[in-house]
Design a binder for these strands. Structure first.
Length: 431
RNA sequence: GGAGGGGUUCCCGAGUGGCCAAAGGGAUCAGACUGUAAAUCUGACGCGCAAGCUUCGGUGGUUCAAAUCCACCCCCCUCCA
């Protein structure tokens, strides 16, 4: 993590060179505000699951970029706002999670938020806060009088982020979700008071909430603060970013293995890979442009995907995670599966290739595919076999009554099951 | 509380008594082509080898036959109070 040190002085220019700035409040003023001293910059993350997913990495890494530029990052975990639910650009009301679950998620998110920031670097060490701390004992009447009075409903319903919800036929918005903006605005004012925080960043869907906070801070604290929004990651083909065949790509290695994580980035479309490098790595825009130029000139398969996969996996899962991921990938995609040694196979298991044991007596391929979740029903399993989509230890399986017997196993007990081009599972014969 | 409009298979959305496991689109999956891309084409997409079975907010009912009709209930939306 080095290359952006040069551009550290002008963090906004650095972000702009990465196409990572969508909106800026009073742009020039914000730039000079940031260049004149070390500032406290905040970004909030609501507990909507037990782990962050890769979408949250853009703002989180942006906080890191601010820290590298000499500012103090404040990572806020939304113990309070997570109980309400942000309606911004959501087309329907969401169901509330129980408070127990939310506080559990808050605890799980804290180490993930911390992992990317430096909490021990003197002046601009990172700060981790929970907005529940300043809301849980705030009584309703005081809140409505002190905070609510500063908001005009007329202005609130004009915000683009909720407008469609209010106008959309067949949908509505509860007062609970409608109030979300007030809570987040209050967070900004509170952080301004507590930590002298003057900048909030977030995804571009947060613009309404951020400007709400700017206005509130001016009114409550008589202090000028600023906001900037980052792009929401989209894919060139219009499908949702951050999902793969097996679901959301989480940062928690027990939810998305480093191998699956690595594979996800490796599969990035050419049309997206260079902008993703700008969002998700610390390579400078210049370096990334150079990679793009080289790839274009080479006329063969681009290098960018493997660079991206390597850097992001390393960033999130460390050296060990990256090594495991590349080891599995190498064995499965470029090696001869039948030639794997017992040690290799054991290593695959340790590295986190999905693995399950197979009962020796009932090891018909159809049942095994279902048991390993490579197929979700017998019917699908048969269809996959009929489509030549299934192989065992590198051998195509074309008969639905194929049996996984000990004599066909590698090293007497392993089966590398493959469905489709990319989905693998290690089956281990129960002894 | 009153009036009206809705709840269909992952999502959107057609379907108003049999021809409906339910149009169409999207998403997803597989195959071909490739670079573990993209685009394109082909196929699949409730469960079951099959006969057949289980679905259309819930519960009961009418009928030879219901996603479609009736009753009650639950939930959502709009307007009025």
């Amino acid at each position: 993590m080095n290359s952006s040190e040069d551009s550290a002085k002008d963090i906004i220019a650095d972000l702009q060179s990465r196409n990572m700035v969508v909106q800026l409040s009073s742009g020039d003023e914000l730039k000079s505000h940031l260049s004149e001293g070390s500032r406290a910059v905040y970004c909030g993350f609501d507990p909507t699951a037990s782990s962050l997913h890769i979408g949250s990495m853009v703002p989180l890494l942006a906080l890191k970029r601010f820290q590298m530029a000499g500012h103090t990052p404040i990572a806020l975990v939304g113990g309070a706002t997570g109980m309400i639910g942000d309606p911004s650009f959501k087309d329907s009301e969401r169901k509330l999670n129980s408070t127990d679950i939310i506080s559990d998620w808050v605890e799980q998110l804290k180490p993930q938020l911390s992992q990317f920031l430096d909490f021990d670097c003197g002046e601009n060490s990172a700060v981790l806060v929970n907005n529940l701390d300043w809301t849980k004992d705030y009584d309703v009447l005081s809140f409505l009088r002190d905070v609510g009075k500063h908001f005009s409903v007329n202005a609130m319903i004009q915000k683009e982020s909720v407008k469609q919800r209010i106008e959309r036929e067949g949908e509505g918005i509860s007062f609970t979700e409608f109030s979300y903006m007030i809570l987040q605005s209050y967070d900004f004012a509170e952080l301004n008071k507590r930590y002298g925080c003057t900048v909030q960043i977030g995804g571009s869907d947060q613009w309404g909430n951020i400007t709400g906070g700017i206005d509130l801070t001016r009114r409550m604290n008589q202090s000028q603060v600023y906001g900037a929004t980052l792009p929401l990651v989209t894919k060139s083909d219009g499908t949702k970013f951050g999902k793969s065949e097996s679901g959301t790509i989480w940062l928690d290695p027990s939810m998305t293995s480093p191998y699956a994580f690595y594979q996800f980035w490796l599969g990035t479309a050419d049309a997206d890979v260079y902008s993703f490098m700008k969002y998700f790595t610390f390579l400078s825009a210049i370096e990334i442009d150079a990679i793009e130029a080289t790839d274009k000139a080479s006329g063969t398969k681009p290098e960018a995907q493997s660079i991206l996969a390597k850097l992001v996996t390393e960033l999130v899962h460390g050296d060990e995670g990256l090594t495991a991921a590349t080891r599995i990938s190498g064995a499965l995609f470029s090696g001869d599966i039948a030639a794997l040694t017992g040690d290799d196979l054991q290593q695959l298991e340790l590295d986190g290739l999905p693995c399950s044991s197979i009962a020796a007596n009932s090891a018909g391929i159809v049942e095994v595919l279902v048991a390993t979740e490579l197929a979700k029903s017998n019917k699908m399993a048969r269809e996959f076999i009929g489509n030549n989509a299934v192989s065992v230890n590198g051998q195509l399986v074309s008969e639905p009554d194929f049996q996984l017997s000990a004599e066909k196993a590698l090293q007497g007990q392993y089966f590398v099951l493959k469905r489709g081009k990319k989905l693998f599972h290690l089956g281990k014969l129960a002894q």
